[in-house]
């Protein structure tokens, strides 16, 4: 993998050092602001809107999510760093939809101005391209989801809304599971994951209903242990693709 932090022509080093300082200072500041604002909404709802939610329920929910995705929280920034470079990291993890939108945007921009990946020029092109992508994304969300979507919800028949609410979860998960299996390209791990999950869902949970809230965490842990134990030789040399689906 090429790194965006490789040596650059010495003439550009001062200006690029300035770029690095500005983007890391402002990148951190804006990301911390985004983090606080995004958590403030649900905390307001939980504690100030009159709903009776015990703090313990929040901790339990957090623990259940952390047990499932905790590893991904750390691995994803690690795998994207070599592709994105430091400045774009602060953009990408706040804007989201990295692999399906921001990476293609950056690559196309680099191609269009003839910047070789790994150079300073390519790093700047990626940052600028992500700014362009962010602008389009914010506008389309505001128009199609904020305005049009809210209007749509108000006019569709109640029966459609009911069906959507009841069955959108299995449709999201069915598609996402297929996407994860195909993009990871690890048949052995896939078989293990499906077998483990089938045992957890159809045997463990019905027999021990008290484990239901931990079922996903159990499945994740068991899949990791078994996949590691039965890993093929080829997996050891395979380069880790960005562990990620969107």
């Amino acid at each position: 993998m090429t790194s965006t932090t490789t040596a650059e022509p010495s003439t550009g080093s001062t200006a690029m050092a300035d770029f690095g300082r500005t983007t890391s200072r402002w990148g951190q500041a804006t990301m911390i602001a985004g983090l606080l604002i995004s958590v403030a909404g649900p905390l307001y709802l939980v504690f100030a809107s009159g709903l009776d939610v015990a703090p313990a329920q929040l901790w339990i929910a957090f623990a259940a999510v952390a047990a499932t995705f905790g590893i991904i929280w750390i691995v994803e920034p690690l795998t994207y760093y070599p592709v994105l470079g430091p400045a774009a990291m602060y953009q990408a993890f706040m804007i989201g939809n990295i692999s399906n939108k921001l990476l293609p945007a950056a690559l196309i921009a680099q191609t269009n101005i003839g910047a070789k990946p790994g150079t300073r020029r390519a790093e700047l092109a990626a940052v600028v391209a992500i700014c362009g992508a962010a602008a389009v994304h914010l506008v389309s969300l505001a128009v199609f989801v904020g305005l049009l979507g809210s209007w749509l919800i108000s006019i569709i028949p109640p029966s459609v809304l009911l069906v959507t609410r009841l069955y959108v979860l299995p449709t999201v998960l069915g598609a996402v599971l297929v996407q994860a299996i195909v993009s990871m390209k690890q048949p052995r791990t896939t078989v293990i994951a499906l077998a483990v999950s089938a045992v957890v869902v159809f045997a463990v949970v019905p027999l021990l209903p008290s484990l239901a809230m931990m079922s996903t965490a159990i499945a994740v842990l068991a899949t990791i242990v078994l996949a590691w134990f039965f890993r093929g030789k080829s997996d050891a040399v395979a380069v880790a693709a960005p562990a990620h689906i969107e």
Binding site: E76, T189, A227, A238, A240, A243
Partner: peptide, 12 residues
Amino acid sequence: MAVVPAAALIGA
């Protein structure tokens, strides 16, 4: 890095 994240994702 190749096995663990993929296992975590597909498992979840």
